[in-house]
């Protein structure tokens, strides 16, 4: 598949889902296309305006409680992302965005409905009610991705209170096994220790960083899904140096 039209990358509600630098994921995807001589268009979908269903990659980032609920309401209303995914678009949803693409998520003491794009649910805790809820997951996170993805180790930073688990009969598979940090956390059914979900062309994860800046191979995987085979691109030398620095810094337990 070779395409001549510009690849369209939608950055969804950066005012609401942009608290943790995740807008950087759009910068990374766009540059990696440009550096290959391929046309790209970044579509900033401002909060309050309708989400277009004609984009190739949809990016959702992290955000605080009230903005997360606003964002969920907005993307649920026109369901453009669901339609786009049905016709082959890819999604990268991070942290609050990851929770929002699932079935339900907690915010401000209530359970809110998500986009139902992937079969996950998020709660403050999955432990029995008498146990105190787990502490907020804040810190460096290292994930060994599922071998089917053919990706090297993923590095990032997580900052979330929620715990996430797959619903019974969920499609897809976890993004990877958590080597350091919390990720989805203890699911209460002994299936903890993973982070994120990969279901078709939808990826959800707790990794900030931004995750695509620290893990350029993941960026290229998303691009390949919507673009087909890409001309080779040596990751910027700087990214290799950063990954080596992260590897060294996070090697000690």
């Amino acid at each position: 598949m070779r395409r001549t039209s510009a690849t369209r990358i939608a950055l969804i509600y950066p005012e609401l889902l942009g608290t943790y630098g995740d807008g950087g994921n759009a910068i990374v995807l766009a540059q990696r296309l440009r550096w290959r001589g391929l046309p790209v268009e970044v579509v900033n979908v401002a909060a309050g305006s309708p989400v277009p269903d004609s984009c190739d990659i949809y990016l959702l980032g992290g955000g605080e409680d009230a903005p997360q609920v606003l964002a969920a309401d907005g993307i649920r209303q026109n369901r453009a992302i669901v339609r786009a995914v049905g016709s082959g678009a890819a999604v990268l949803a991070v942290c609050a965005g990851y929770q929002v693409i699932g079935a339900t998520f907690p915010s401000g003491g209530e359970i809110h409905e998500g986009l139902n794009l992937v079969d996950i649910e998020t709660r403050r805790s999955f432990a029995p009610p008498e146990t105190p809820p787990p502490t907020r997951a804040v810190g460096d996170i290292v994930v060994e991705p599922d071998p089917r993805l053919g990706l090297p180790t993923l590095y990032g930073y997580e900052n979330h209170a929620g715990r996430t688990r797959r619903l019974p009969g969920a499609g897809g598979f976890p993004l990877g096994a958590v080597r350091r940090g919390i990720g989805d956390g203890d699911s209460g059914d002994g299936g903890g220790g993973t982070d994120g979900i990969v279901d078709g062309r939808v990826i959800g994860t707790y990794l900030h960083g931004p995750v695509l800046a620290q893990n350029p191979a993941l960026a290229d995987l998303l691009l390949t899904w919507v673009h087909g085979q890409l001309p080779p691109l040596e990751a910027p030398q700087e990214a290799q140096v950063l990954r080596e620095a992260r590897r060294r810094a996070l090697a000690a337990p």
């Binding site: 950087g24 540059q31 800046a213 910027p236 700087e238 990214a239 140096v241 950063l242 620095a245």
Partner: peptide, 12 residues
């Protein structure tokens, strides 16, 4: 410095 360097690389 490595994180800043990657940021600047993508900012060209």
């Amino acid at each position: 410095k490595e994180d800043m360097s990657v940021r600047l690389a993508y900012a060209e």
